[in-house]
């Protein structure tokens, strides 16, 4: 499966970026060439949020069914999610600098993304601070679930800090909304799909390493090592 998703990532990323750079108009509403950062930014931002849900879902599956593999997948998802979050923030800063003239603004979406990064960091820190893998898995899984319950409340509280004005939930500064050139939209969706495939590759590879590391006392791992020597 890994080579399959790997090639799919490469093809989609190259294709989407080619489409995005050469088949689309030079401007998006009032933004010039620099809007093209959208092809990385949106894909990364979508994956960052989706992967947190994936991580929490595998954590729940692990806690309910007591399956070790679920915890391993949840553990493997976290770094990819954190990287996607960081990438979204980073490219967002560049984009903000060119279009709004500022690297950072306390805009609800950006703040939410930053807090999502904190949540990923907390998960990974707890996971790595506990030596016993069984306890580490279950403790981090519980944390992911608590985080999942809190995430909507946090995002909502950032979105409308004044409860009397919650009608203004839709912020106007969000990029990408409204009427978009179809070509730009296609290229953006293709690169977003590429990010998805990349997540599959990275997570599967990481799960494989985690399994090998944890099962290093078993005979089949040792046989595998002997064979590959």
């Amino acid at each position: 499966m890994i080579p399959f998703f790997g090639w799919l990532t490469a093809i989609l990323m190259v294709g989407g970026l080619y489409w995005g750079f050469f088949e689309t108009p030079d401007r998006l509403s009032d933004q010039k060439e620099y809007y093209r950062i959208i092809y990385i930014h949106v894909g990364a931002a979508w994956m960052s949020m989706w992967l947190y849900v994936v991580m929490a879902a595998w954590s729940l599956a692990g806690l309910v069914f007591q399956t070790r593999l679920s915890f391993m997948i949840a553990k493997a998802v976290a770094p990819t999610g954190a990287i996607a979050t960081f990438l979204a923030l980073w490219t967002g800063a560049f984009w903000g600098q060119t279009s709004w003239g500022t690297w950072w603004d306390w805009d609800p979406r950006m703040t939410s993304e930053l807090i999502l990064l904190f949540l990923y960091m907390g998960y990974m820190a707890l996971q790595s601070a506990i030596d016993d893998p069984r306890r580490a898995d279950r403790a981090a899984a519980l944390l992911a679930l608590v985080g999942l319950v809190c995430v909507p409340i946090i995002f909502w509280s950032i979105n409308c800090p004044d409860p009397n004005e919650c009608a203004a939930l839709h912020q106007t500064s969000s990029p990408g909304g409204g009427n978009m050139e179809p070509n730009i939209l296609i290229a953006m969706l293709v690169t977003a799909l590429a990010f998805w495939m990349y997540s599959f590759v990275a997570i599967l590879m990481r799960v494989r390493n985690i399994i090998l590391e944890r099962e290093r006392h078993t005979t089949w791992v040792n046989e595998l090592l002997e064979k590959n020597k």
Binding site: I115, G122, L126, I130, L142, L143, I154, W156, S157
Partner: peptide, 25 residues
């Protein structure tokens, strides 16, 4: 969750402070 871990205090702040945000807001 952080019971008995080394560096538990600083880890605790990393886990808990983001969850405190709504109350503070």
């Amino acid at each position: 969750l952080t019971l008995g871990l080394r560096g538990g205090g600083i880890l605790l702040s990393l886990l808990i402070l983001p969850l405190y945000i709504p109350v503070m807001v």
